[in-house]
């Protein structure tokens, strides 16, 4: 609304300035008016002279008119000053300028100042907002970088922990495998010893069976009545001697 009012005031001032201005001339009138005005003025001054001359006076009057026209023409067609304007133009122009200046001082400048202030405030606000946004972005960036650093640290920690766990697991597995191998070797040695003992036992039993079986057969073959009697006698003698 204020902008419209301001534009209307400016437009009115311009129309008033340029619309009221007339054509520049020496007298401030038209050329025909100038001729007419000058002609009537000169004729008013020379009216009595024309009646006194008669026929003779007629030729003389014609000559005089021609001179008068030349003089009028000289007056009316005289060029205006290129520097000093006509007084009416100065008045109208000055008034318009004052009106325009007053309008500008009254409405224009405050409006422009207000717009400029608002614009400045908006720019300042935008700058503040930009600064705030920048600060926020920097904060977010810092937070992101901190989180990234934390993530890297956490990743490194996890990797290190996993490596340590893997190392521990590997050591445990190796230790267990070595223990298992040692147990297997011990068990194998025990099994071997047991198998050897069994084999030796079986072999010894086999040999014993063979030897004792042979001895039994020899003894049975030789245990006749005489041998039985001799064994009984030996028993009786041994028991009696104890």
């Amino acid at each position: 609304m204020k902008k419209r009012l301001f534009l209307a005031s400016v437009t009115g001032a311009l129309l008033l300035t340029f619309g009221m201005a007339g054509t520049a001339s020496a007298s401030g009138e038209t050329l025909e008016g100038c001729f007419l005005e000058e002609w009537l003025e000169e004729k008013g001054h020379l009216g009595g002279d024309h009646g006194e001359g008669g026929d003779h006076g007629g030729d003389h009057a014609a000559l005089h008119d021609e001179e008068l026209l030349a003089e009028i023409e000289k007056k009316c067609i005289e060029a205006p000053s290129p520097i000093i304007p006509e007084l009416n133009e100065v008045i109208w122009g000055g008034g318009a300028f004052l009106v325009l200046l007053a309008l500008m001082l009254w409405k224009g400048f405050p409006a422009v100042k207000k717009i400029m202030d608002e614009r400045s405030e908006k720019i300042a606000s935008d700058l503040d907002q930009a600064d705030q946004t920048k600060a926020d972005a920097q904060a977010v960036k810092a937070q992101y970088e901190a989180e990234l650093a934390d993530a890297k640290s956490e990743a490194s920690r996890i990797i290190e922990e996993a490596r340590q766990q893997a190392e521990t697991l590997r050591a445990d597995l190796q230790e267990r495998a070595e223990a298992d191998i040692a147990d297997m070797r011990t068990q194998a040695a025990l099994d071997f010893d047991a198998a050897r003992e069994r084999a030796m036992g079986d072999l010894q039993a086999e040999v014993s069976d063979i030897v004792v079986g042979a001895a039994e057969r020899v003894v049975e073959a030789n245990l006749d009545a005489e041998a039985q009697t001799r064994l009984i006698e030996n028993y009786i003698n041994q028991v009696g001697s104890e």
Partner: peptide, 19 residues
């Protein structure tokens, strides 16, 4: 395995008594 004579039984009894 075989039967003992009476003499053997007597001597055996004597030996067992001494033992």
């Amino acid at each position: 395995v075989i039967e003992l004579t009476q003499d053997q039984q007597t001597r055996l009894a004597s030996s067992l008594k001494s033992a």
